[in-house]
């Protein structure tokens, strides 16, 4: 689906080993703008390792990463962020006692001057822009002024996502098992959220164990097995059996 010239991200021959074990052993794939790509595979297939190399959390042993056609070397999560690659952590990295607006603006709080001199946090502005960001991904929170620890899992995810949208730099959002540990209704909301990001032109790379979820949101599904790409399945051709077969391998 994604041509090399138009790809947002392209990786070639990615390799990474830990103490002689080849966790990732030559992986190639690409992601287009606004495309949702899922990475599936059994435990130890190399999903997290691949994603962490892209996110700057691991350095690769071999291989090349192209970002918007240019070779890049993300050495740290900050490097990746500067490129426009954001990673949503499983614990979401939110401050539980802070409200959603405070979390969205954490580290980037706007300040206004009272009487032209005294600097004060511009909470009204934070709430206003938070509401806009949440509106962009069609998320409604009960209040922007309650601590996020009082929000549901899906609402916290929405808050984490809105954080990424704030900088307007995010072009690729990596999600590691975003629907795990959520109720059914909440899972649905997260999938809707991914759909909304896609419509905003933001690419999503999602790791998930839940094939149903993967099949409902992903444009393409990359199946890893033993650190290699066992197959790339476009949505049109994707069904449960094909993917399961690729995950477990051609031993049948």
């Amino acid at each position: 689906m994604s041509d090399d010239a138009t790809a947002l991200l392209r990786v070639e021959g990615l390799r990474k080993s830990f103490g002689g074990v080849h966790a990732v052993d030559g992986v190639d794939f690409s992601i287009a703008r606004g495309e949702v790509v899922a990475v599936v595979g059994d435990n130890g297939a190399g999903k997290s390792t691949v994603v962490k190399m892209i996110a700057g959390a691991y350095t690769r042993d071999e291989g090349r990463i192209f970002w918007e056609g240019r070779p890049v070397e993300p050495q740290s999560p900050e490097d990746a962020k500067d490129l426009g690659i954001e990673t949503m952590y499983q614990d979401l990295a939110l401050v539980p006692d802070l409200d959603p607006a405070g979390n969205i603006f954490l580290g980037k709080e706007p300040v206004r001057r009272l009487f032209g001199v005294v600097p004060v946090l511009d909470r009204a502005e934070m709430r206003r822009r938070s509401a806009e960001l949440l509106e962009r991904v069609r998320i409604r929170l009960p209040s922007l002024q309650v601590p996020v620890r009082q929000l549901s899992g899906g609402q916290r995810q929405a808050t984490a996502i809105a954080r990424f949208l704030l900088s307007d730099r995010a072009k690729l959002i990596i999600m590691d098992e975003p629907t795990a540990a959520l109720g059914v209704q909440e899972q649905r909301k997260v999938l809707d959220l991914i759909e909304q990001l896609k419509q905003q032109g933001i690419s999503v790379l999602v790791i998930s164990h839940n094939l149903e979820h993967v099949l409902s949101v992903a444009d393409r599904i990359i199946v890893l097995r033993g650190g290699r790409v066992a197959g790339v399945v476009p949505r049109a051709a994707a069904d449960r059996q094909t993917i399961v077969a690729l995950i477990v391998g051609g031993t049948a």
């Binding site: 929170l141 009082q150 929000l151 549901s152 609402q155 109720g183």
Partner: peptide, 12 residues
């Protein structure tokens, strides 16, 4: 507070 369907618009 959990599901959010009947909740008012954000910010308000």
């Amino acid at each position: 507070m959990r599901a959010g369907e009947t909740l008012p618009a954000p910010g308000r």
